[in-house]
Design a protein around this nucleic acid. Structure first.
Lengths: 243, 243
DNA sequence: CGACAAGTTGATGTTACTCAAAAGTGGTGG
DNA sequence: CCACCACTTTTGAGTAACATCAACTTGTCG
């Protein structure tokens, strides 16, 4: 049941963080150390409760999670999808109020994020980059919900997930795992699950997408990128090459 | 033409930052120093261009600005409204790509944000808090666009602006200045200006709101708060009092 | 096999968008 | 002071996108 792509190579969270900044060997070790005691949390459990004080930043080692806002009348909005290697509550060290619960979408492993060696160490830089990158994805989520229609929203989300999963080695050139129900997708995109379902079928009929089991295959990513005026977000180490 | 509320007391940006952490006297001085050379930018000018490298964080001293994403077909989404005392591009020190342009909504004064004395100084804490608070407002913007209808979105935005302006001393208990056109509001809320206009009129007819010139008066803020399940965001220094 | 969650389908209702034009507002120069 | 301009706000009529409600089907797992 584990995604094939994760069977080889370093664990996703390491791939991710080392892609952001060169880590000191001690930092890599402390990452591996926290991994050992990392508990497994079952799907649908809360990782951080709504309004619960935040002790320290945590690192999502494996599995998917999401920050969620629930409304009284049953409406629910997924604010942000968290993938392996993402940090949870990066800087809420000082202030005790979490915004929205963080729930596990799949079974997940979560560990306290180890402390960087110093304020300018590789790990510290990686954490900062994480926060920066997350902010950009939040901006994208806002633009998505504000100005894209259902078809475009779904395309844009798939492009984002594909891009992010490639960074941690969990996606191939044209496929990625999608362990979310259609209802979760709908809650991410501000749609009803019924409408999301129809949008998904339209994409399949138009042969831009295949969705078998939990695997998405993008058949015409370029068309989707053009449709939503896709702008790549991730800022990787090797970025300074000339185009 | 200056808002009456700003004529007395310390400047808004100082009110804001001192509310977040106790600043060292030297830090207050360096803030006052950058103020002197702060240029005035006219409304509708770009403060940060789309994709333009970010030199350093900047501080919005006065006026309103917004981070914006423009689409080719004329669609536009305001991602986040920036008020006096807000920081622009807090942590994009390392990575050169800005996400979305930042444009002045009114005439603004912008200064480079002075460096904190040290990593744990009051100013450094205030900057971190700023980032944290901004993230919460981004989460709120996402929930707003994803799960609220037009009426609720507008109510929620007004409640947010009122709350934030109170922190900088630019609002009274029930009024605040609103130097945005209806089109800007629509672009913030993911609506058309036509529909926004009708929603505003509905609010006026229901006597929850008055809007004269650039001043909003909230006549029944409690009802609006209940409607959108309002949760206060700002984390202020004096927060630890018992309720 | 039975039960529960997820996905699918159809019919109908509502919210918000589109297009188009009119009316109000403020600033500028003659 | 008025005429003019550009911009903003307002109004109306028709339409499209998405929601709602209520089944029904498919899969999965014990």
């Amino acid at each position: 049941m584990v995604s094939l792509a994760t069977l080889k190579g370093p664990p996703p969270y390491l791939t991710r963080l080392e892609g952001l900044a060169p880590l000191a060997p001690e930092e890599v070790q402390s990452l591996q150390a926290v991994t050992l005691r990392a508990p497994v949390l079952r799907a649908r459990r809360e990782i951080v409760g709504e309004g619960e004080p935040v002790r320290q930043p945590r690192l999502l080692l494996s599995g998917w999670a999401a920050r969620v806002r629930d409304f009284a009348n049953g409406r629910r909005q997924i604010l942000h999808v968290l993938l392996p290697g993402d940090l949870i509550d990066l800087w809420q060290q000082q202030k005790p109020v979490a915004v929205g619960a963080v729930v596990a979408l799949t079974d997940v492993r979560v560990a306290p994020a180890p402390n960087p060696l110093g304020p300018t160490s590789g790990l510290a830089q990686a954490y900062v980059s994480c926060g920066e990158i997350e902010q950009r994805y939040l901006f994208r989520q806002i633009a998505r919900l504000g100005r894209l229609d259902a078809y475009e929203r779904l395309a844009d989300l798939f492009l984002e997930l594909h891009e992010r999963l490639r960074l941690v080695g969990d996606a191939t050139d044209d496929t990625f795992p999608l362990p979310m129900t259609q209802e979760m997708l709908a809650d991410t995109l501000g749609l009803t699950s019924v409408h999301l379902n129809r949008t998904l079928q339209l994409m399949r009929r138009e042969n831009v997408l295949e969705l078998h089991g939990n695997t998405v295959r993008m058949l015409d990513a370029d068309r989707l990128r053009a449709l939503v005026e896709y702008q790549s977000v991730p800022t990787h180490i090797q970025e300074r090459r000339s185009p």
